[in-house]
Amino acid sequence: MLGSIDCMHWEWRNCPKVWHGQFGRGDKKYPTILLEAVASYDLWIWHAFFGVAGANNDLTVLNNSLLFDDLLDGIDPVAPFECNGVTFEKGYYLADGIYPQWASFVKSFKVASSEKNVLYKRKQEGARKDIERAFGVLQGRWRIISHPARAWTINKLRRVMHTCIILHNMILEDQKYALAEFDEESYICPQPNILRTWVERCDIRRKKDQELCDKNTHAKLQRNIIEHLWQ
């Protein structure tokens, strides 16, 4: 499991009126900008994507995010794992119900119909709270992002958000709370993308996109995790 993915709203009090339609939401007093992040159990934020115009829900952010760019280009880290006796080639992220049924997402059930599913639902939703905790700690440490933003430009807000995330990770590392340690050389893709021709890169991207959006792999992974937890 690579981490938990979710989005956080940051209200933008001084959003220019001409942009209210792009950033406005009916359930928010002010326009909002979404932060998409991936956090692990030690609250380390591994991925952050912020500041897309018109990004008013998690799916819109995901479609513009850079999260799967390396995977689609065939240069993502090699991280196979085995679950319930079945080998899977890529890691996965814990996500909530709004995310699509992709091979890289493991979601919960709206209604659990058996004891196995009840156990899985409790474990998945409990582990996915890592990202919610990370958002809470981030806002608790930096008062500037816990209140509506008063800047006038997206670039300034993006710099503020990224700075807070970098400082958040630096604090974790300094306090020895960052628990993830790995050998970088063992996760490097064997064939750099720069050595491939344009046609090869297009073919790889097409193939990887099909693998990423494969609902069968999503269901297969979910079933095996349910059996693994039950055993």
Rank of each mutant, 00 (worst) to 15 (best):
D6Q: 08
H9P: 00
H9Y: 12
E11P: 00
R13L: 13
N14C: 11
W19V: 00
H20I: 00
G21D: 07
Q22T: 06
Q22A: 15
G24V: 12
P31V: 03
T32H: 05
I33C: 09
S40C: 05
L43N: 06
W44Y: 13
A48T: 11
G51W: 06
V52S: 14
A53N: 04
A53D: 09
V61N: 06
V61Q: 01
N64Q: 15
L67R: 02
L67I: 15
F68N: 11
D69G: 00
L71R: 05
P80H: 02
P80M: 04
E82F: 00
E82L: 03
V86P: 01
Y92M: 08
A95R: 09
D96I: 05
G97Y: 07
Y99R: 07
Y99C: 04
P100R: 08
Q101F: 04
Q101V: 02
Q101P: 00
K107P: 04
K107N: 10
F109P: 00
F109S: 02
V111E: 02
V111A: 02
S114C: 12
S114F: 00
K116H: 13
N117R: 11
K121V: 05
K123R: 07
Q124M: 13
E125S: 15
E125T: 10
G126N: 05
G126K: 03
A127V: 03
R128Q: 12
D130W: 10
E132S: 06
R133D: 01
A134K: 04
F135M: 12
G136P: 00
G140R: 01
W142R: 13
I144R: 06
I145C: 07
S146A: 13
R150T: 05
R150G: 00
N155E: 15
K156T: 13
T163G: 11
I166L: 08
L167P: 12
H168R: 10
M170P: 02
I171Y: 14
I171S: 06
L172R: 09
D174E: 13
D174N: 08
D174G: 09
Y177T: 00
A180C: 11
A180H: 11
F182N: 08
E184V: 15
E185S: 11
Y187W: 04
P190H: 10
Q191P: 04
P192L: 01
P192R: 04
P192A: 04
N193D: 10
I194T: 14
R196V: 07
R196P: 00
T197P: 01
V199N: 10
V199Y: 00
E200V: 08
E200R: 09
D203Q: 09
I204T: 15
K207V: 10
Q210Y: 03
E211T: 14
E211N: 13
N216E: 15
T217S: 13
K220G: 06
Q222M: 03
R223N: 14
R223I: 01
I226F: 05
I226Y: 01
E227D: 08
H228M: 03
L229Y: 14
L229W: 13
